[in-house]
Amino acid sequence: MSLMTPIPYGRQCITEDDIDVVVKSLQSNFLTQGPTIEAFENVFADYIGCKYAVAVSNGTAALHLSALALGVNKNSKVITSPITFAASANCVLYCGGEVIFADIEEKSAVLDINKVRELLVNSPKGTFQGIIPIDFAGFPVNMESFRQLADEFDCWLLEDSCHSPGGFFMDSNGVQQNCGNGQYADLAIFSFHPVKHIACGEGGMITTNNKELYEKLLRLRTHGITKDSNKFVKKTQKDGAWYYEMQELGYNYRLPDLNAALGISQLQRAHEGIERRIEIARKYDAAFENTQIKTLHNPRGHAYHLYVIQVDNRLGLYNYLKDNEIYAQVHYIPVHTLPYYQGLGWKNGDFPIAEAYYEKCLSLPMYPSLTDKQQDFVINSIKNYYNGN
Rank of each mutant, 00 (worst) to 15 (best):
Y318K: 11
T207W: 01
A61R: 04
S57H: 00
I333N: 03
G345K: 00
C50S: 14
I100M: 13
A286P: 03
K283S: 14
D103T: 02
A62H: 08
I83R: 05
P368W: 00
L220G: 07
G204R: 00
E359I: 00
D151T: 13
I382P: 02
L65Y: 10
G166W: 07
I309P: 03
E105L: 15
Y327F: 15
I382G: 05
G273F: 14
V72P: 06
N142Y: 11
A67C: 15
H331A: 06
H271F: 09
V43N: 05
K238S: 09
D350F: 02
I274E: 14
Y52K: 00
A270C: 09
V175K: 15
K231Y: 04
I113S: 05
L63E: 11
W242Q: 13
V110W: 05
I280E: 14
E38N: 02
Q129G: 13
Y243P: 03
K125V: 14
L158K: 05
R269E: 12
N259Q: 14
I293N: 06
N210S: 06
V92R: 03
N90A: 14
P299T: 05
A61E: 06
K74Q: 14
G301Y: 10
Q374M: 11
A39S: 13
Y251R: 12
F40E: 06
V308I: 13
L119T: 03
E325V: 01
G345M: 00
R254L: 15
W346V: 02
E16V: 12
